[in-house]
């Protein structure tokens, strides 16, 4: 495959999609109902990225249960996020529990 065609084509298509709404905005009034609806984009898109990463980390079906480091980390991240709202604290605590959950010590405590 020609690298120039591949990279050039991907770059052009990606840019056009990203730019489409910026080119269109300002040329017509966005209806109030649409702009109200757009407020839901961040929680909807981000949740659609988060949930499979937590519940289907292998990408091949649900991995639920007490032993899941992803679920343990995500729950702590959610708690810290709700109580504190500091994203760095969320990442450190969530990743900390995620790694801790994989140590033999914690797995022993959980009886896994």
């Amino acid at each position: 495959m020609n690298d120039f065609l591949l990279i050039g084509g991907m770059a052009a298509i990606t840019f056009l999609i990203r730019y489409a709404m910026f080119a269109a905005a300002g040329r017509f009034q966005i209806p109030a109902l649409v702009s109200r609806t757009l407020r839901f984009v961040p929680p909807a898109v981000l949740s659609a990225i988060i949930v499979p990463a937590v519940l289907m980390p292998g990408g091949k079906g649900l991995e639920l249960g007490l032993g899941s480091p992803q679920i343990a980390g995500a729950l702590v991240a959610l708690l810290v996020g709700r109580l504190w709202g500091n994203i760095l604290a969320v990442v450190i605590s969530g990743m900390g529990v995620f790694w801790l959950w994989q140590t033999p010590f914690v797995r022993g405590l959980l009886g896994l």
């Binding site: 929680p43 988060i50 709700r82 994203i87």
Partner: peptide, 24 residues
């Protein structure tokens, strides 16, 4: 896994409103 965790930090404050929590 750090990326979805960081996104949890972004979404968490939204969850106190019913429509936002529904979206999530």
């Amino acid at each position: 896994f750090a990326m979805p965790v960081a996104f949890i930090g972004i979404v968490a404050p939204y969850l106190k409103q019913l429509p936002m929590a529904t979206a999530a």
